[in-house]
Amino acid sequence: MGKMKRMLYFGSLAAAIVVLAVVLWMDKYYMPLSFLMIGLAMLPFYIRFERKTMKAEEILLIAMLGAIAAVSRVPFAPLPSVQPTSFVIMMSALVFGPEVGFLVGSIAAVVSNIFLGQGPWTPWQMFCWGMIGFTAGLLRNTRFMKSLWGKNIFGFSWGFLFGWIMNLWFLIGMYDHLSWKVFASAYVASFYFDLAHALSNVFFISIFSAIWLKILLRVKSKYGLLDSELA
């Protein structure tokens, strides 16, 4: 494709999306609009992923970490409220950076939904777990994230944030009047689950983050990724 042609192509695509968004907004079709927005928010990550040159090792690393995040519930089967997936995604992001973090999170979501059944929640889950990875990766070199306290606060907040964002998908479309009361009562209803998520994050981070970082750092050097862009 020529450069002109490509620019035209992407330009018209962008324009179409904007028009569509405006129409949906004006007509108060908030639910399709929200899906459109979620899709757009994830698009840049995937465009970058598609275009970057990557070694076989890097692809496998992301796939393997995604698969581990997806199956990490298995050993905790007797404890229904424990949720190690976010922890695994966070640790991957802390070692391999924001992009890998995002991909591991969102791929874990797609894949676990392939096994459990896709639903309208799939894009939201991709977004939430992706964002846990992305934000953890962005902050990984700050003093805040280097401290155990920082990591714990981060994990705790994401425990709640995750639940709050996941509530959004049906709140947006389902109620005629989005008041604070609606949000508040949805959040009260999911409080127990969100708290369990936040607390298990804290538990895992405070006891196991050091070991995980060590394991992943060893992997990083074994995969020869120390001086690549991922580092």
């Binding site: 070694k55 076989a56 090792e57 692809i59 496998l60 690393l61 393997m64 581990i68 990490s72 050993p75 905790f76 007797p78 404890l79 424990v82 190690p84 695994v88 298990s200 538990f203 895992f204 006891i207 196991f208 070991i211 995980w212 394991i215 992943l216 060893r218 992997v219 074994k222 995969y223």
Partner: peptide
């Protein structure tokens, strides 16, 4: 519960170090 959570994590430790080690071979095969 605490014990189960700890052991669950030990399971994941073994899994992650073992599987990421083996995936290097997968990379060669690719």
């Amino acid at each position: 519960k605490r014990h189960l959570m700890r052991e669950g994590m030990e399971t994941l430790h073994t899994l992650i170090s073992w599987s990421l080690e083996e995936a290097l071979q997968t990379a060669s095969s690719m």
